[in-house]
């Protein structure tokens, strides 16, 4: 993977959006946004509230249809694909608010996520990776416990495991550490780094700058539905425009 100024090269881009636009009623949430993510990257998306980060994720995952623009994944135009086909192609989104199957047990939740993968599609890698993830988060015991009895952080982790179970090439994590203690945040950060080290491309939306610092090499800053800065974290933190938006500096 080669990088120049933190920008991935054209040929290695796993995900690419071109002039992506989305409005809700009178509000333009995403405004002609161009974004590129290379295979194997670990990228953080930051920006003030309402900058369009979650909307961008929902457009990539297919929950909302873009008003204009295109999305390319592995070179294929997926702009018109329904969400479930995008998952089959290798994109998986972990929602902002936890959305596990509350009345099903942990193992039943996982059964649903794994149900797609018949024996022939389930390679040793996927099963091994999932087992490692479950063990990291302490979800590998008590499989019969209903998901609603799990504490919030564990539900977040279960969601990550569900997303992993679909064997994604691109994992979208929307505020994975919301509501977590500093220890839990550190555990999650460590996990995300390791997962990326194994080859999964990960895009993370986060508000918690501690978490961002723990994981990020490359950062994209959104504001009013546009990319206003992109690059290594240090450069972003020093960037005048970014500081102005976040801190109101002159």
């Amino acid at each position: 993977m080669t990088e120049r100024d933190g920008r991935p090269q054209q040929s290695e881009r796993l995900l690419r959006t071109v002039a992506l636009t989305k409005s809700f009623g009178g509000i333009r949430a995403i405004d002609r946004l161009d974004l590129g993510v290379a295979r194997g990257e670990l990228r953080c998306l930051i920006g003030p509230n309402g900058a369009g980060k979650s909307t961008l994720f929902s457009l990539i995952a297919g929950i909302h249809r873009a008003d204009a623009g295109r999305i390319f994944f592995k070179g294929e135009d997926i702009t018109r694909l329904p969400p479930f086909r995008r998952v089959l192609r290798g994109i998986c989104l972990k929602f902002q608010t936890t959305r596990v199957y509350r009345d099903l047990s942990i193992s039943q939740n996982l059964l649903v996520a794994l149900a797609l993968r018949g024996p022939e599609r389930r390679d040793g890698d996927t099963a091994g990776r999932l087992a490692w993830a479950l063990a990291t988060f302490g979800l590998d015991r008590d499989g019969d416990r209903p998901a609603r009895e799990l504490p919030h952080s564990h539900q977040q982790w279960l969601e990550i495991c569900l997303a992993l179970a679909t064997d994604p090439d691109l994992l979208l994590l929307d505020e994975p550490t919301a509501g977590m203690t500093p220890d839990e945040t550190a555990l999650t950060a460590d996990f995300v780094r390791r997962l990326n080290g194994q080859g999964t491309t990960i895009l993370v939306v986060e508000h918690d700058m501690t978490f961002v610092r723990q994981i990020a090499r490359a950062v994209t800053v959104l504001h009013y539905g546009r990319v206003i800065a992109e690059g290594p974290l240090a450069a972003i933190e020093a960037n005048k425009d970014v500081r102005r938006i976040y801190l109101g500096e002159q």
Binding site: S23, G25, D31
Partner: peptide, 11 residues
């Protein structure tokens, strides 16, 4: 009607 509002909101 909503979409018309959205188009009108173009900056």
């Amino acid at each position: 009607q909503r979409r018309r509002m959205g188009a009108a909101a173009a900056p």
